[in-house]
Design a protein around this nucleic acid. Structure first.
Length: 335
DNA sequence: AAGACGAAAGTGGTTGA
DNA sequence: TCAACAACTTTCGTCTT
């Protein structure tokens, strides 16, 4: 009897999903018209959506129109028809960002079986008990509750920074691994969650500085750094140090600099790298100096103060980096 | 007066004994 | 565990435009 009840519930779920899917399909077909946007700088319509960095970039001049875009796409790829069919799905995909990976069952509240017939009063009582326990089981013990809390916190911060889904997944996975290894003992959940987010950013090559993350986190920058190093060591995640180039486009657009400056800055960093001027130095400082130099060379000068504020280093650091670079490059920089 | 420059002292983190 | 160390910051006085 219990078994048949379960089967029936699954059927109810299945039928509901089918209807839902059909509706979604209809909706999608309705809003097929494309939205055409053009670049305010050069008028080009060739815009690239860089979901990894959450940026909308003009292909011709490199202007960043929007750095808060949301990735609407599917998270799987299909290369031919068979794969597409094989990978199409009913219901949401399994995800690490929900504490039970989004795989738990919710028993529907409708007292009908899969054929739409009413369920007898005797069975109704049983169905009620089943639902009650299903709910109770879903968020069970303390660890589950903590995980649910940490993941919601993770999602809140990721939303505040408009990070794409792959970063969220990577962060959630890092957090789960930290939990499995009992690394949260003696550390705050928020601290570990934030560190996991930072690790996720590093892993996915999405440049966010510790300062930017600390701005939306509920823990101090110091603690994030400490916790991050700890879990990175314990989980043996070793990422390459972030290249200064990764920051350039974001900072340039924040300073309203043109694509020419951006290109020049990237070139400057590249040359500085070849002369071993970047190793051991903070990547943000190098990026700041390169942008500062490029802005002068291209005749769109920004003050050291302006650059320093956007990048999050002091003027002194910019001066030091830029002196080193200028010395190596010779008179080129001196106007 | 604003911006650039540089000296000096302090901070937080890494490294090596 | 501690001291040495490099990178970076803060603060402040001076110079240049």
């Amino acid at each position: 009897m219990k078994e048949t009840e379960k089967v029936r519930d699954v059927e109810v779920d299945g039928a509901k999903e089918r209807i839902k899917k059909k509706r979604e399909k209809e909706k999608k077909e309705e809003r097929l018209e494309e939205i055409v946007v053009e670049c305010p700088l050069c008028g080009s319509r060739k815009l690239i959506q860089d979901y990894k960095r959450a940026e909308l970039v003009c292909e011709d001049c490199g202007f960043v129109l929007d750095d808060n875009i949301i990735d609407p796409g599917p998270e799987w790829r299909a290369f031919d028809h068979d794969q597409r069919m094989g990978r199409s799905r009913t219901g949401p995909p399994a995800t690490y960002t929900i504490h039970d990976k989004g795989l738990s069952t919710m028993i529907d509240w409708i007292d009908k079986d899969s054929y739409g017939k009413a369920i007898s009063s005797q069975d109704k009582a049983q169905l009620y008990r089943l639902r009650k326990w299903q709910r109770r089981i879903r968020v069970n013990d303390a660890t589950e509750r903590n995980l649910a809390f940490a993941l919601s916190e993770l999602d809140r911060m990721a939303s505040a920074l408009s990070l794409p889904r792959d970063v969220r997944e990577a962060s959630a996975l890092a957090y789960r691994r930290a939990v499995e290894k009992n690394l949260i003992r003696g550390r705050s959940i928020e601290g570990v969650a934030t560190a996991a987010l930072y690790a996720g950013c590093r892993e996915c090559g999405v440049p966010r500085t510790l300062n930017e993350i600390a701005a939306v986190a509920r823990v101090s920058r110091k603690e994030i750094g400490r916790t991050y190093r700890f879990i990175a060591r314990e989980l043996s995640l070793n990422f390459m140090p972030i290249s200064p180039t990764a920051y350039v486009s974001r900072f340039c657009s924040a300073l309203k600099l043109s694509g020419a400056v951006e290109t020049k800055a990237l070139e400057t960093i590249q040359r500085a790298k070849e002369k071993e001027l970047t190793s051991g130095k903070g990547p943000t400082g190098v990026a700041a100096a390169a942008i500062y130099i490029a802005s002068i060379v291209c005749g769109e000068k920004r003050t050291q103060r302006e650059v320093a504020d956007v990048v999050g280093v002091t003027e002194v650091t910019i001066r030091n980096r830029y002196k080193e670079i200028a010395k190596e490059f010779g008179i080129e920089i001196i106007l």
